[in-house]
């Protein structure tokens, strides 16, 4: 019974991890930028959901409609105005720039919202489903469903729409995309905007489940990174597989060695993967 519960928990958590990671993976894959502000954007999304529920009682899943365009605009402008200026510089520069932006956003959140942990508690509570001894809270099921919907939407967007094809083209071969007349700078801004929108939406969903505090941003960022490495960069299915794999390892690890070693465990997994299979579970070699 414990095994079944661990598996179900891992499946639920894995979908949420995937949702956290796809935006990060998209930006990394297309722009070759490690977006360190991703974690803080997730937390900002969570505050948006929390604030709207507290003030006017909007349920978090309706907040998604507001969060997506709002965060897209934030991301688009960040890329247009700041990141595009240094996009060709070495890794250290882009990485440090997003770190600086993260410091600013995180400090602003601590300043305005305080570092206290808050929890979005739905009234009345949605309760939980019990199926043959395996218990799953309903809010988690809803969050997971929306996480899958978001992931599916991104997949469709990249597959079917003209802009999506352009984003994939820039990722596959930057120079060839330029020759085909793709406006790379604006595709960069769109990709970063999409990444930010996904971060914001993921944050809205996280607010349903986890406590909210600016201090949690680095944990989200760490998860996103490990998921990307496990699943392979820049592909939607890769993020899904990576998320499930990480959640499974964490769940089993928590039972075997105890939950206080979660970070150490995922770090060891990360190092092993980077050395043994740097392209990830689903990644193809030479595809970066």
């Amino acid at each position: 019974m414990l095994a079944a519960q661990v598996l179900v928990n891992a499946a639920v958590l894995g979908c949420l991890y995937a949702c956290i990671a796809i935006g990060f993976s998209l930006v990394w894959g297309v722009l070759n930028v490690i977006n360190l502000i991703h974690g803080s954007l997730i937390v900002l999304g969570a505050y948006l959901a929390w604030g709207l529920y507290q003030w006017i009682g909007v349920l978090p899943w309706y907040v998604l409609v507001v969060a997506a365009p709002l965060f897209f605009a934030i991301g688009y402008l960040l890329q247009r105005l700041l990141l595009n200026k240094v996009i060709t510089a070495p890794v250290l520069v882009t990485l440090t720039l997003t770190f600086g932006l993260d410091l600013i956003l995180n400090n602003a959140m601590i300043y305005f919202f305080k570092a206290d942990y808050r929890k979005l508690t739905l009234v009345p509570s949605l309760g939980s489903i019990s199926l043959g001894g395996v218990v799953v809270p309903v809010d988690r099921v809803i969050a997971t469903a929306f996480a899958l919907v978001l992931t599916g939407l991104l997949y469709l967007l990249l597959r079917r729409s003209r802009v999506g094809r352009a984003v994939v083209a820039v990722r596959l071969d930057h120079d060839a995309a330029v020759l085909m007349g793709v406006d790379v700078k604006s595709i960069y801004a769109i990709a970063f905007g999409l990444g930010a929108a996904l971060a914001g939406c993921a944050g809205v969903l996280m607010a349903l489940i986890f406590p909210i505090s600016p201090l949690t941003s680095s944990a989200y960022l760490g998860k996103a990174f490990v998921v990307c490495v496990l699943g392979g960069l820049g592909s939607v299915s890769g993020a899904l597989v990576g998320g499930l794999a990480l959640a499974l390892v964490e769940g089993v690890g928590a039972v075997v060695v105890g939950p206080s070693y979660a970070t150490t465990l995922s770090f060891l997994l990360l190092i092993v993967f980077l050395i043994v299979r740097p392209q990830g579970l689903l990644g193809r070699k030479g595809f970066e």
Binding site: T96, L97, F99, G100, L103, I104, N107
Partner: peptide, 8 residues
């Protein structure tokens, strides 16, 4: 935050 601004 000011440190971040300095970095940027």
């Amino acid at each position: 935050g000011l440190l971040g601004l300095l970095v940027v």
